[in-house]
């Protein structure tokens, strides 16, 4: 793939997907777990304060889900652009 428009399009789609995933990654950890932790702590999730829960539990579950979402979306994208491995 030598810099043709299809290659550029594949790369652009990949970057867009990475951007979406990393936005969620940022929101659930840095935003909910650190920056907004105090207001969120006013909400309770069972015995957990919500901000505390995001920092010590929730963000990790979301990280796992994000990687699998990215991996499966990329597998689809690879096929769509016919750059997948056999």
């Amino acid at each position: 793939m030598s810099g043709n428009s299809k290659g550029a399009e594949y790369w652009k789609r990949n970057l867009r997907l990475v951007f979406i995933c990393l936005t969620i990654w940022f929101i659930c950890s840095y935003l909910f777990g650190i920056v907004l932790v105090e207001p969120l702590n006013a909400i309770k999730l069972g015995g957990y304060k919500l901000g505390f829960w995001f920092a010590q539990q929730g963000s990790m579950y979301i990280f796992v889900a994000l990687i699998f979402f990215y991996a499966s979306s990329m597998n689809k994208l690879d096929r769509e652009f016919d750059v997948h491995e056999d």
């Binding site: 990475v18 995933c21 990393l22 990654w25 950890s29 963000s59 990280f63 994000l66 990687i67 990215y70 991996a71």
Partner: peptide, 8 residues
């Protein structure tokens, strides 16, 4: 969270 960066 570093694994998210690693994978992507």
């Amino acid at each position: 969270g570093g694994y998210v960066l690693l994978a992507m």
